[in-house]
Nucleic acid binder design. Structure first.
Lengths: 132, 132
DNA sequence: TATAACATTAGAATTATTCTTGTCAAGTAA
DNA sequence: TTACTTGACAAGAATAATTCTAATGTTATA
């Protein structure tokens, strides 16, 4: 609970529930996943609250919004810069905590002020290899 | 026209129109952009045809479906492996035709068979820098 | 020509997300 | 405490992107 103070938001029961569900979660859940998980302990929590909370968290830097999945947004509580390994079959997303040195020459960046980078590695995971 | 034969699809007028609109297009248009562009010459073309064609093209390897934009899919006729420079303000997407050597050690890939990779560089473009 | 296979259209349906409205709860100032 | 303000919440409507369905049209080939 203390650990979320730095986000600067009012820690309501709903927000705490979402935060602690996300905390340490490696599944990169979607809004729906979160909503479903919440409805056990908070049967009255609405989708709007899930979306509002995620939006607030995203803006405060408490969560990353991933666009990797073409069909929905996924959320990642790990806000430290990292990369992703994606199974093209089962859509599983695995974090990679390694820095890739990209060596980007200035003439490549078209005058942009670069803020960050994200590497996606696509492939087929071991489970999906077997079952095909 | 000849140049699309390798895709192995029936080249109907609608498909040719979409293909030639995409050919050389650097804008990474969305389905809606394509639909609007089509309606000049093909006022009866439906959204379903645009989506069907894009899906077919994607499956045949004639176009890349980009998930960079959180709100919609974008399409890229350049199917050679390349990377993207993204303006976080105006959402402009610029192609980067440079290979980054990623040096991925085996223990990072969790047993995946890697197929490809995609690097996204995020920043603010010169235009948006001025206007802020 | 007949038939099968595929393409197209129009619109309905679905899915993910955002918006609107009314209500409620916590905090603050008198 | 009381009144006021603010932010949070729930419920459901609204929207946007995409997919599905059913009917029709077209093309290729036997």
């Amino acid at each position: 609970m203390e650990k979320y103070k730095h986000l600067g938001l009012k820690l309501t029961p709903q927000r705490l529930a979402i935060l602690s569900y996300l905390d340490g979660n490696k599944e990169h859940p979607s809004a729906e996943d979160i909503y479903k998980a919440m409805s056990k302990d908070f049967p009255t929590m609405s989708f709007a609250t899930v979306y509002n909370t995620l939006e607030t968290l995203r803006d405060k830097g408490g969560v990353l919004e991933l666009t990797i999945d073409p069909n929905k947004k996924r959320y990642d509580p790990n806000t430290a810069a990292h990369h992703h390994l994606i199974c093209m079959k089962c859509k599983r997303i695995i974090d990679i905590h390694k820095e890739f040195s990209l060596n980007i020459p200035d003439e490549m960046t078209e005058g942009f002020d670069l803020v960050g980078n994200h590497v996606e590695l696509y492939g087929i995971c071991p489970k999906c290899k077997k079952s095909s």
